[in-house]
Simulated scan of single mutants.
Amino acid sequence: MQEKLKQKIIEVCERKIAQKGRDVGLSFYAFFANKNDDPELLMEAATWWIMTHQLDHFEKAEKIKKMVEAN
């Protein structure tokens, strides 16, 4: 996983947890703007989320943050 994506995921997870609490869920779309401004990074996130880890559409932000930090 690119460092750029890793840092973005951690930042978004931390922000969502701070805003909505430890049980907040999110999908990999949470890491991107509504417009597709970085398709390569979006595909990397989708591949990591769907193909590599076979995660559900929504997962706990805390779980995702821990997974990314462990890599």
Rank of each mutant, 00 (worst) to 15 (best):
L55C: 11
A45N: 05
K16Y: 08
E40T: 10
E62N: 13
A46I: 02
N71F: 08
L5S: 02
V24A: 09
A33P: 03
K65R: 09
L55A: 12
L42K: 11
V12R: 01
F58L: 11
A30Y: 02
F31D: 00
L55D: 08
R22M: 14
L42T: 04
A30H: 02
W49V: 00
E69C: 10
A45W: 00
Q2M: 09
M51R: 12
K6N: 01
M67R: 06
E62H: 15
V68T: 04
S27Y: 03
W49G: 01
A61P: 03
K63T: 15
K63W: 15
D56C: 09
E69G: 07
E59D: 12
T47V: 10
K66M: 15
E44A: 11
L42M: 10
E14C: 05
E14V: 08
I17S: 02
A70E: 10
V12K: 01
E11N: 11
N36Q: 10
A45Y: 02
Q2D: 08
F58M: 12
Y29R: 07
F28R: 03
L5Y: 00
E3T: 07
I17N: 02
N34H: 10
W49M: 04
N36C: 06
S27H: 02
A18L: 02
E14W: 06
P39N: 07
V68K: 01
N34I: 09
A18H: 04
L5D: 01
D56W: 07
K63M: 15
N71V: 15
W48V: 01
V12C: 01
M43Q: 14
E40K: 12
A70V: 09
A33T: 08
T52R: 14
A61V: 06
M1G: 10
I64R: 03
E44K: 08
I9Y: 00
N34F: 08
Y29M: 07
L42P: 02
I64V: 13
A70R: 09
M51W: 09
Q7F: 04
A18Y: 01
L26W: 02
T52Y: 11
T52I: 13
E69F: 05
K6V: 03
Q54E: 14
K8P: 02
V12E: 01
K20H: 13
K66Q: 15
A45C: 15
I50W: 05
D23Y: 14
I64F: 06
E14S: 11
A18V: 01
I50N: 14
I64M: 09
Q54L: 11
P39E: 05
N36A: 11
F31I: 04
C13W: 03
R22N: 15
H53N: 14
N71Y: 05
K66L: 13
H57P: 07
R15D: 04
I9N: 00
Q54H: 14
W48T: 01
A46H: 05
H53R: 09
N34P: 06
F32R: 01
K20W: 11
V68I: 14
E44M: 11
